[in-house]
Amino acid sequence: MQTASERLRAAFFPNLRWVLTKIERIAVPLLLVAVWEAFSRSGALPQALLPPPSAVLHALGDWMFGIDGSAQDYSGTWLRNALASTMRVAAGFAIAAALGIVLGTAIGWSRAIEATVEPTLQMLRPIPPVSWIPLAIIWFGIADRPAIFLVFLGAFFPVLMNTIHGVKAIDRNLIRAGAMMGASERQLLTDIVVPAALPSIFAGLRIAVGSAWMLTVTAEMVAVKSGVGYVLWDSYYFLRYDMVIAAMVSIGLLGFLSDYGIKLLMARVLRWQRTTVRRGA
């Protein structure tokens, strides 16, 4: 039978561990924000060039909720711009993921397809996606389509390369065992190859969604007249560096949420990894 002190420890220490875990996660960001605030207010640089976090938070709040109109034309328009950017990321990322997984599986599985297709893809892969901007504008005009095209280019190759790696790294004994059980080539692909390659595929998807956000912001600076990237670039022209940093924070937040969504999906699909993969201490 537990004593009073044992019951107290059992009730208190799990909560203490939870609190310490939360503190560990926010300690570094809070320290960086405090140093930034102190440096900005020290006068080493004009606050117009390096706004303190408090000013950035105020600009972001007005951009989101239209508090006092300090964000001027963009007051209260954050949700509209965030949705526009998210739509472009989602469209380009979905096309890149579908094509990258299908083509990567085919290249990793078939030597004939690898010999035919991969050399061309490897020639295209080193070309920076931003170098396609002039052609994208010529082909698609000033609208959503050039941004979606650039997002696709940025997200496609991480998915493709990780899928190829995942397929090629499969234990051949699994494939031999499936073949000995009478599985057809299609069944080998759907029941053994693709499931075994999923950890690598999800790694590619997480890299790709980060690239997708970088490319959509780049496209919005040049080829689109809406979205978070457009607000960032327009604010730069009007020397509103608090809005520039607020847009940067927004991009980071949206990218984090996108990655977190993929992590949740990965945890659901790859439940078996919880007992086979080492976690941090």
Rank of each mutant, 00 (worst) to 15 (best):
L121T: 13
A82Q: 09
F65I: 07
P46D: 11
A11K: 13
T21Q: 15
R176T: 01
T216K: 11
F156R: 07
I133E: 06
L83S: 12
F65C: 00
R9C: 03
M123R: 14
L31H: 02
L198F: 02
T77M: 05
Q187N: 02
D73T: 05
A112K: 15
W213K: 05
D171I: 02
L150P: 03
L215V: 09
R111A: 13
I262V: 11
Y241E: 05
R274K: 15
G100T: 09
F238L: 05
I245F: 09
L160S: 08
G178R: 00
M180P: 04
S54A: 13
V33Y: 00
F12N: 08
L205M: 13
A91V: 14
L270Q: 12
Q2W: 12
R271P: 11
L270Y: 11
D171S: 04
V28C: 08
F202R: 01
P51S: 08
A4H: 12
S258L: 10
I137R: 06
I201L: 04
H165E: 14
L32F: 14
G43L: 10
S184I: 12
A169H: 09
L264V: 07
L30G: 06
L103Y: 03
V269N: 01
S226E: 13
V193L: 05
I251S: 05
E37M: 11
V130N: 10
N81L: 07
I95K: 08
S42L: 10
G204F: 10
E37K: 11
G69S: 08
S131K: 01
W213F: 06
A11E: 09
I133V: 10
W18F: 12
G66C: 01
F256S: 11
A38I: 15
T276C: 09
D68C: 04
S42Q: 09
D62V: 02
P146L: 07
T120M: 14
A143T: 05
L239T: 13
I175Q: 06
K168V: 05
V269T: 12
W233N: 10
S184C: 12
I142G: 02
N81I: 06
